[in-house]
Design a protein around this nucleic acid. Structure first.
Length: 540
DNA sequence: ATGCAATGGCCCC
DNA sequence: TGGGGCCCCTTGCA
């Protein structure tokens, strides 16, 4: 608990020195900076918090205290981080240090040379393949179709089919697997008997794109046939069933390594397991790759170099491994974070960059895995911390971007969009930290923590609560809709009426579902969506 | 309308 | 180092 005197103080910005130890963002430091911050805070509005600080001491990461203070006003907790009647006058998300940083909060990448042979090889062979010229980013910013209440629990992960452009897979908290043809909108199915609880991660079988592997908190890996829904269990960490919470094992991270023919999975106590895809049998013994007893939430095999593995977890580290020397403590590098690391991914094409999402409200970028990995090339401030009840936010690369700089991630904190409080999905250029686009839809008022960009098309899939949405660029969306009307399907349930009303206001006629619903509700569509939950004045 | 439940991280002893 | 208790503060449904 911070001292009583800090009760009324304004946001606390801590400037960390390079030499600071992990946990040393103590109260003394915060106190030192209090006056600086108050001076900044007086200025009106536009995210001025971090700029003066950055000027003062260059090259040092900027850290904002996360201790028991409102994420908007930095007072001791109030509901002010969302637009609501109780928010404190004068404090909005616009001047919250946790709001999305554009140029602010970005540390320019110094040119750091590691002087090793790996760097040499990288410069010679790999770097030239990464385009330095950034293309014009294409942002799918308009909802093209969606399925409301498709899953019976919140969506946890998404995966596009590797060859069929219109198929989207989705996992949920109940362990169910959805297969949706989003061009034929109504062709959808949810397989319910694959897992007993949370489907944490899934990946297609590289040898057979009709089957998908999934890791679940029920402690099993499944391999499911998408046509039949019949699934095979490759591994079960709880063969004796429920023996109490202390012995129950859960599987989180999952990836496949096509070159080695392996499925890699990691559990909630720090262990990595390898499963041979041909024999469906475990290879060797489990390896402790993160702190004993901590969750390993993410695994990613390098797309170019099959021997490199990236893992991340609740011990606040992302770690790089050589698959040929997998032993506890033998990681090549340990990338430190201030809090839990939700995800860590190599860049999709060259495999030479690393992007992580951490609960400390930062995206971190390492520009070259062969350079100096002691500190990230950039930290980008972005609101995505969560606690319970939400699927962890994960920044995802655009697999189509040759410059490997466009990234998508949902935003936690709400903003005022023409009087409606919405949680946008952000597109960020990780080479500069610039916010390229924030996409919203007035009828999607829930947070969208799960997002994935299509490997070939200009399509974004997002999972928000129990619903799925497909976004396309505005123009393209209009073209496609000439023949294929926008469709929002609402699955059954009591909330159906309410949701129908909401979306009816938006659609044009001829959509079967919506016109039926409209007549049923005897509520013709209106131009402005109803915003019952919040009433806000002002606009952006 | 109101309230509850599901449930993860982390701090402190 | 383990576990109890506190805090975090969404969403849907009863």
């Amino acid at each position: 608990m911070p001292p009583q005197t800090r009760r009324t103080s304004f946001p606390t910005v801590v400037i960390e020195r390079d030499t600071d130890s992990e946990e040393s963002s103590s109260d003394e430091e915060e106190e030192e900076e209090d006056d600086v911050v108050e001076a900044e805070e007086v200025e009106n509005g536009e995210a001025v918090e971090e700029e003066p600080v950055a000027k003062k001491r260059e090259k040092v990461p900027i850290t904002i205290s996360l201790k028991k203070v409102c994420k908007t006003c930095k007072r001791v907790w109030s509901n002010a981080n969302f637009f609501s009647s109780s928010r404190i006058e004068g404090h909005t998300t616009m001047n919250c240090p946790h709001r999305v940083a554009t140029e602010h909060g970005v540390i320019p990448a110094p040119h750091r040379i590691a002087h090793n042979s790996m760097e040499y090889v990288f410069e010679r062979q790999i770097r030239p393949s990464v385009s330095k010229i950034k293309p014009a980013f294409v942002v799918p910013d308009q909802v093209h179709c969606g399925v409301i209440r498709y899953h019976s629990r919140r969506v946890t992960c998404l995966e596009f089919h590797p060859t069929n452009n219109n198929i989207l897979l989705s996992g949920d908290k109940k362990g169910q697997l959805g297969v949706w043809d989003f061009c034929k909108v109504h062709e959808k199915i949810v397989y319910g008997n694959i897992h007993g609880c949370i489907l944490n991660n899934m990946k297609f079988n590289p040898a057979n794109d009709g089957t998908v592997y999934a890791a679940s908190s029920d402690g099993t890996i499944s391999c499911t046939d998408l046509e039949t829904g019949i699934s095979l269990s490759l591994m079960n960490l709880n063969p004796n069933g429920w023996q109490g919470p202390s012995s129950w094992r859960m599987l989180y991270g999952l990836d496949v390594n096509p070159e080695k023919g392996l499925v890699l999975v990691a559990d909630n106590v720090g262990l990595l397991y390898l499963v041979d895809m041909r024999s469906n049998s475990k290879v060797g013994e489990a390896t402790l790759i993160h702190k004993k007893g901590s969750k390993v939430v993410g695994l990613h095999c390098n797309p170019v170099q099959p021997d490199l593995l990236l893992s991340c977890g609740n011990d606040h580290f992302a770690r790089i491994w050589d698959m040929r020397q997998l032993k506890a403590g033998s990681s090549l590098y340990n990338l430190a974070h201030k809090r839990v690391v939700n995800s860590a991914y190599f860049s999709p094409q060259s495999g030479s960059k690393i992007l992580t999402t951490s609960q400390d409200n930062r995206l971190r970028v390492w520009d070259s895995i062969f350079g100096n990995l002691d500190s990230p090339s950039r930290e980008i401030v972005h609101s995505h911390d969560f606690n319970r009840h939400l699927t962890p936010f994960r920044a995802e690369w655009d697999p189509k971007d040759p410059s490997e700089s466009l990234v998508v991630i949902g935003r936690y904190i709400s903003e005022n969009y023409n009087g409606v409080a919405l949680h946008p999905i952000d597109f960020i250029d990780i080479s500069t930290g610039q916010l390229i686009a924030e996409v919203t839809e007035p009828n999607i008022t829930t947070i969208s923590p799960v997002n994935k960009l299509h490997p070939r098309d200009d399509v974004l899939a997002s999972g928000s609560s129990r619903s799925l949405f497909i976004w396309r660029p505005k123009e393209e969306s209009e073209i496609v809709q000439e023949k294929d009307e926008k469709k929002i399907i609402v699955c059954g349930g009591k909330a159906e009426k309410k949701l129908n009303k909401k979306f009816a206001g938006e659609s044009d006629d001829s959509d079967d579902d919506l016109s039926t619903l409209k007549s049923k509700n005897s509520k013709p569509g209106k131009a402005a969506p109803k915003t019952s939950r919040y009433s806000i004045k002002g606009k952006r």
